[in-house]
Amino acid sequence: MSEYITPNGRIPTRHAKESLLRHGFQELFDLVDDIIENYSRRTTQSDGATVYIQRTRGKTTEHNIVIEGEEGIVTGLLK
């Protein structure tokens, strides 16, 4: 079993493993599950990938994003 599988069993692609870490996600990747399960908005890209957008609140309204394609989690961004 890959060390990169999220607690809820989602599998990041090879690209996502590096990208998620670079964009501020921690290796447990539990935040990936949280964004997907508690999204504020969901949309589909032209390539069929699903984009999950989670609105966050701090001093300003920001958004966390996870993109999931046929191969698994593609990337994510924390704001």
Rank of each mutant, 00 (worst) to 15 (best):
R55E: 15
Y39T: 06
S40H: 10
F25N: 10
I53M: 10
D47W: 09
I36E: 15
T56F: 05
S40G: 10
V51M: 07
F25A: 03
Y39L: 01
G58V: 11
I53L: 08
T44Y: 01
V32I: 01
T43V: 07
T43I: 05
V32C: 04
A16R: 01
A49T: 04
R57Q: 14
E27S: 06
V32W: 00
H23L: 05
G58F: 12
G58E: 15
G58L: 14
L31I: 01
R42T: 13
S19C: 00
T50K: 10
E18H: 05
L21H: 10
L21M: 06
E27V: 01
N38C: 07
Y39S: 13
T50F: 07
R22V: 04
V32K: 04
T44S: 12
T44F: 03
R42M: 12
E18R: 08
D30A: 02
D33C: 01
R42C: 05
I53Q: 15
R55T: 13
Y39K: 07
A16T: 04
R41T: 09
Q54Y: 11
F25C: 00
G48D: 12
D30W: 11
Q45A: 15
V51P: 00
S40C: 05
L28R: 15
L28I: 06
L31E: 13
G48F: 11
Q54E: 15
Q54A: 10
I36Q: 12
K17F: 00
H23M: 10
L31N: 03
N38S: 14
S46W: 06
L20H: 07
Y52F: 09
E18V: 00
S46L: 11
Q45P: 12
N38W: 01
S46C: 10
D30I: 00
S19P: 00
Q26C: 01
K17R: 04
K17W: 01
L31C: 01
G48C: 07
D34M: 06
R41K: 12
R41G: 07
T56D: 08
S46M: 08
N38G: 09
E18Y: 06
D47I: 13
Q26R: 10
T43Q: 13
F29D: 10
F29L: 04
L20I: 00
R57A: 13
T50W: 01
L28Q: 14
V32G: 12
V51L: 11
F29S: 03
D47M: 13
H23E: 15
I36F: 04
I36C: 12
N38R: 10
Y52K: 03
L20D: 11
L28V: 06
T44G: 09
V32S: 08
G48R: 05
I35E: 01
T56I: 14
I36H: 13
G48A: 13
A16V: 01
E18G: 08
N38V: 01
S19Q: 11
E18K: 09
I36L: 05
Q45W: 02
T44Q: 05
S46T: 09
